[in-house]
Design a protein around this nucleic acid. Structure first.
Length: 118
DNA sequence: TTTCTTACA
DNA sequence: TGTAAGAA
């Protein structure tokens, strides 16, 4: 199918579909006309991309784990062991980011608390 | 009509 | 990401 049908069946815009390809998330073939050709599997791939993106993962790591993920209904299942490892590392990065934000917040609280009453 | 690429308010 | 322009 070409991009138009993909838009209808995935609800994702042409712009985004082409962007996903740029990011190495999708690999549609090309017709001699230059038109992109997608297969049925790509529809599920787009669904995986959307949920992964919703999880806050970057397109670069999504590109890495995409081939090692299974999409069944609403649930995404990591297959390869190294994929699970990457997800755990990503989780650690998030945990670290949360800690830093909390530290920033407490510092601000201290500054705010020191403000003279008006 | 549909899709493609490139560029920008 | 949306949208516009110009071409195939």
């Amino acid at each position: 199918m070409r991009i138009g049908e993909m838009v209808r069946r995935t609800g994702v815009s042409e712009r985004l579909l082409r962007y996903y390809e740029e990011q190495g998330l999708l690999h549609p073939t090309r017709l001699p006309s230059g038109y992109r050709v997608y297969n049925e599997v790509d529809i599920d791939t787009v669904r995986s991309i959307r949920s992964l993106l919703a999880s806050g993962l970057s397109t670069t790591i999504i590109a890495k784990i995409l081939p090692c993920v299974s999409i069944d209904g609403p649930t995404l299942t990591p297959i390869c062991s190294d994929t699970i490892t990457e997800l755990q590392q990503e989780r650690e990065r998030i945990t670290h980011a949360i800690n830093e934000l909390q530290a920033s917040r407490t510092m601000l609280d201290t500054v705010i608390a020191a403000a003279p009453a008006t």
